[in-house]
Design a binder for these strands. Structure first.
Lengths: 187, 187
DNA sequence: GTCTATAGTCCGATAGAC
DNA sequence: GTCTATCGGACTATAGAC
């Protein structure tokens, strides 16, 4: 049921959880090894055994959100019905699910890496490029697909930085409009 | 022709320029007073005379991009023709102009503040909320206006983090599609 | 108004015991 | 595998000369 590998090295998961939570609590640039260790309930030495450097910790945070998003996408792909711009609608759904409790914090890894070591975001850049390629080759209406994708990226960006001015009702309305755009080419 | 106030305190402008450039060169979290002072051609003491703390410097960077964007919006408002969803098309145009050499670097102030002191982004949050209110009260087609706005925010977000996979041609195509969406309600 | 020098703090990483 | 203790470097901010 659960991944076998998720039982391996429980400390790593605890540490990554702590780091992800801390970013939203104190800010990406204030993430220190001391703070992460304390929040994870271990010592700084214990942390540095699992992640030999702060850079390695940030890299682990970035990889974790990428793995989670890819897994969710694969899982959704089999259950989502076909239809116009199916690929774009899949991507949009995955992005919007990211706000749910679990994945929301994981996305903080991107903020932390962006603040401290932007080079670590190369895998994210690759995902974006790959998403664009998939949309180009699999969209019924590329213009609508790109606008729908970018609109949800914009919404996610707002939510990641706590800029979103939208109520839950506003959000539902926007999502419905994006879906209409992807299905019919108009809002 | 030029703003009278821009001759006042030339050092401040030099410092803000240096800080903005540095963010894209070395990363938001590596912005230090030493580096800014060196890049601006003054000493750290001279810097701290103009900005009494690093927090004040970050605040100055945030305010500068806000002022620039608001000024550009006001200027564009008088020259842009009317038409469907005029307010949304105005906002979209301002956001897209931000990529131009001058304003692009200014936007780095947001990255720097986000990394070090996210509280300083409150004015940005206010602008987002205000933009939403304006769109709600002045749009012919709110759904289209919101999607167009969010799509361009998504594109800007990609470009700000150097995630954009789009060629210049792709970008023009996307902008054209957004404009069609705002004018006609369909892509 | 800008400089140099330095105080004081925080943090990442290492060393070695258990 | 996790701990404590500590080193060494980097950074913000202050003090005072010019």
């Amino acid at each position: 049921m659960a991944k076998v590998s998720s039982m391996r090295s429980n400390s790593r998961e605890k540490i990554l959880d702590a780091a992800a939570h801390l970013v939203s609590e104190i800010g990406a640039g204030r993430l220190t090894l001391d703070a992460v260790a304390h929040r994870a309930g271990i010592s700084k030495g214990g942390l540095l055994y699992n992640f030999p450097s702060k850079s390695a910790l940030l890299q682990g945070m970035v990889q974790r959100i990428i793995d989670e998003v890819c897994a969710e996408k694969d899982q959704l792909r089999s259950t989502m019905p076909e239809g116009p711009n199916a690929e774009a609608r899949l991507i949009v759904t995955v992005l919007l699910n990211m706000r749910s409790s679990k994945t929301k914090d994981l996305a903080n890894g991107i903020l932390a890496a962006s603040a401290e070591e932007p080079e670590l975001l190369a895998p994210v850049r690759d995902i974006v490029r790959q998403t664009f390629e998939e949309l180009k080759s699999r969209s019924d209406d590329l213009d609508a697909a790109l606008i729908g994708w970018l609109a949800v990226e914009g919404l996610s960006s707002f939510e990641m930085h706590d800029f979103s001015p939208f109520t839950e009702q506003d959000r539902k309305r926007i999502i419905a409009a994006v879906d209409r755009l992807l299905r019919n080419g108009k809002v």
